[in-house]
C-alpha cells in the first residue's frame, strides 16, 4: 500500500460493492460458485467417472484396469441370469421393506399428527428420531445378537415353541432389520403430510356421512399419497443400495454385495457397471415419485 492513499481498502471495497450492486448476475454467480462447484465437481464428477469406468475392463491376471472402450460389462450384466436374479431379489426386498414401513408408520404418524396432545407429540417425535442418533453399524450388529441362535428373539419365542428366522440362508431376518432401520424415514414425512391435512376436510367428510373407513379411503389417503411416496423414496433407495446389513444377517447376496465383492477383487470397471443398475432403478423411481407429487411433500 502506498502512503499517499490513506484508505485504499475502504475505497476499493466500496467501489467493488457498488459494481456488484449493479451486476446482480455476478453476485448470484459468486454466491452459488461454491455449492455449485461442489455439486458439479464432487458429485456429478464422480458419477461421470463411475460411468466412464463402467465401459473399461480389467486384465484378468494382473487386475489392472484396461482403459479401452468395451460394452462387455453391461453385456455380462444383461445376459448372465445371476445379475437378473439378484437385481429382482433386491428390488423385491426394497418393495417389501417400503410396504412394511408404510403399514407400520401410518398409525404412528396419524396418532402423532391428529390425536396426541402436543406434549405426547413431542415425546413421540423424540422417540422416533432417537434411533437415528445411534450409529447404523451398532444397530445392524445389535440385530445380529437379536437374531442369533441364543439371541433375544429365540429366547422370547421359545415358550411358544417357535424359533426366529436365524442368520443363515433366508432373508426374513434381513427384512426385519431393514424395516427397523428405515422406519423413521417413513414416519417423519408421513407425520408432516398428515398434519398438513386441514381438520375441516375431515369434518366435512363426516358431515356428508363418511364413516371412518370411507374418510380414510376417499379423503386422508389421497391427500397423504405424496408424503407416502416421499417416505418411500428413503426406504426404497436405502434398501436398494445397502450391503452391510445383508452381509451381517444373511448369506444371501444383494446388488450391494456384488458391487462390494467386485470392489475387492478388484474389478472396479465391473463394480462401476453394476453400480449403474441401482442408479437407474432409483432414477426411474424418482421420476415416478415426482409425477406423484412427492417432491412437494418433502
Amino acid at each position: 500500500m502506498t502512503s499517499t492513499d490513506a484508505r485504499p481498502t475502504g475505497n476499493s471495497m466500496r467501489r467493488l460493492a457498488g459494481w456488484l450492486d449493479r451486476h446482480a448476475r455476478v453476485r448470484l454467480a459468486m454466491l452459488l460458485a461454491a455449492p455449485m462447484g461442489w455439486l458439479v465437481v464432487a458429485y456429478l464428477g464422480s458419477l461421470t467417472l463411475l460411468f466412464l469406468n463402467a465401459f473399461w475392463s480389467r486384465d484378468p491376471f494382473t487386475g489392472q484396469v484396461v482403459r479401452e472402450f468395451t460394452p462387455n460389462n453391461f453385456v455380462e450384466i444383461l445376459t448372465n441370469p445371476l445379475y437378473r436374479t439378484v437385481t429382482l431379489r433386491t428390488v423385491a426386498m426394497a418393495v417389501a421393506v417400503t410396504l412394511t414401513c408404510a403399514v407400520i408408520a401410518f398409525p404412528i404418524a396419524y396418532y402423532m399428527a391428529r390425536v396426541a396432545s402436543s406434549r405426547t407429540k413431542g415425546l413421540l417425535a423424540v422417540a422416533v428420531v432417537m434411533p437415528l442418533w445411534a450409529s447404523y453399524l451398532v444397530k445392524a450388529y445389535t440385530w445380529r445378537l437379536i437374531l442369533s441362535n441364543d439371541g433375544v428373539l429365540n429366547w422370547l419365542l421359545s415358550p411358544l415353541g417357535l424359533r426366529g428366522p436365524g442368520l443363515g440362508d433366508n432373508v426374513i431376518g434381513l427384512w426385519l432389520v431393514f424395516t427397523y432401520l428405515w422406519l423413521p424415514y417413513m414416519i417423519l414425512p408421513l407425520y408432516a403430510g398428515l398434519e398438513r391435512i386441514p381438520g375441516s376436510l375431515l369434518e366435512a367428510s363426516a358431515d356428508l356421512g363418511g364413516r371412518g373407513l370411507t374418510t380414510f379411503r376417499r379423503v386422508i389417503f389421497p391427500l397423504v399419497v405424496p408424503a407416502l411416496v416421499a417416505g418411500s423414496i428413503f426406504t426404497f433407495s436405502l434398501t436398494l443400495g445397502d450391503y452391510i446389513a445383508p452381509s451381517l444377517v444373511t448369506t444371501t447376496q444383494f446388488i450391494g454385495n456384488l458391487i462390494f465383492l467386485n470392489f475387492g477383487v478388484p474389478d472396479l470397471p465391473f463394480a462401476a457397471a453394476l453400480s449403474i443398475v441401482p442408479l437407474v432403478i432409483v432414477v426411474v423411481y424418482l421420476l415416478v415419485a415426482r409425477r406423484m407429487g412427492a417432491f412437494q411433500a418433502l
Partner: peptide
C-alpha cells in the same frame, strides 16, 4: 460420456 470413455484408451501394463 461414452465418447470420452472410448477416447481414454491406452495405458497398458
Amino acid at each position: 460420456m461414452a465418447i470420452v470413455a472410448a477416447a481414454c484408451g491406452g495405458g497398458g501394463s
